[in-house]
């Protein structure tokens, strides 16, 4: 919000010298830094200062990427990792949001389930991996479980916080116009939780991705994490970096998608309230 506003200002008040708008400056400096770092990385390796065995180089990573996508060898791994992420994450959403709404709605239920949620929230859920592998094997099932456990806790907590943050006024108004519980839930509580909910969904997505990575590093037969570990064992640093980049791209993509959806659901909110 601040960037377009300052652009408007600089247009309204002509500067004596030609100055870039704040937004352009930001993008230029940001992109420049990234390009400079990539060039430095490439240069350090090309000049023989550092063995590419240790840090690879942008051009080598690009070559691996072209190779892998060109031959299509990477798709099975991407498919496995995506399924692990999606199944676990969607299950976490389907369980987490209703559960968060319920413990936000009923004080007693919150008292009953609170200790379990607090305990699970205090530990990294990847700690349970040895157990999950014992229970579900090294295939995709154990990854579903760890991704689910990673994502569900932040989603429950955020949804709960969102319900608690609702204006009691709104609910009282709806009550006095004799709205049904269902109507109150869909018309007031749910829209009110959106900012919290999406914060939880984004945090949960990070945890879900972490679950995929750690689960696959720990024990797996396929997936991008599996590819990274195998490449690491063969000292194939280029492929390791390529895998890390894939995970980075996945992280950026998920965040972007969630931001889009959030903007769609939150479009009605007056700007001043949402900040």
């Amino acid at each position: 919000m601040s960037a377009p506003m300052s652009m408007g200002l600089s247009k309204a008040r002509p500067m004596p010298s030609v100055r870039l708008s704040e937004r352009a400056q930001r993008q230029l400096v940001g992109a420049g830094t990234v390009v400079a770092l990539l060039l430095l990385w490439e240069g350090v390796v090309a000049s023989g200062l550092v063995d590419p065995l240790y840090i690879s180089s942008p051009s080598r990573i690009l070559r691996v990427a072209i190779d892998q996508f060109g031959s299509g060898a990477i798709w099975p791994d991407i498919r496995v990792s995506s399924i692990e992420f999606l199944v676990g994450y969607v299950a976490a959403i389907l369980v987490g949001i209703p559960l968060g709404l319920m413990i936000g709605w009923s004080r007693r239920l919150n008292y009953l389930l609170g200790p379990f949620i607090d305990i699970l929230n205090a530990v990294p859920r990847v700690t349970f991996l040895p157990l999950l592998i014992l229970w579900f094997g090294i295939g995709m099932n154990s990854k579903f479980a760890v991704v689910f456990m990673g994502a569900v806790i932040p989603i429950v907590i955020a949804t709960h916080a969102g319900v608690r943050a609702n204006e009691a006024r709104f609910i009282r108004v709806a009550r006095s116009f004799s709205a049904s519980e269902w109507k109150i839930m869909t018309a007031i509580i749910l829209p009110g939780t959106v900012p919290f909910l999406f914060a939880g969904l984004k945090y949960g997505a990070g945890r879900a991705l972490l679950g995929v990575v750690v689960g696959e590093i720990y024990a797996s037969t396929a997936g991008v994490g599996h590819m990274i570990v195998e490449a690491g064992n063969l000292f194939d640093t280029d492929t390791v970096f390529f895998g890390v980049l894939l995970f980075m791209a996945a992280g950026v993509a998920v965040t972007t998608i969630l931001n889009r959806i959030e903007r769609h659901f939150d479009a009605w909110r007056p700007r001043g309230l949402a900040q």
């Binding site: 930001r26 940001g30 992109a31 830094t33 990234v34 770092l37 990070g206 991705l209 972490l210 995929v212 990575v213 750690v214 590093i217 994490g225 990274i228 570990v229 490449a231 690491g232 064992n233 640093t237 390791v240 970096f241 895998g243 890390v244 995970f247 980075m248 992280g251 950026v252 965040t255």
Partner: peptide, 19 residues
């Protein structure tokens, strides 16, 4: 540093473990 922080934040850093 903004784009670097955003990239670092989006990456699960544990993927760097083999490196």
């Amino acid at each position: 540093v903004e784009p670097l922080l955003a990239a670092l934040n989006a990456t699960p850093q544990v993927a760097l473990l083999p490196l």
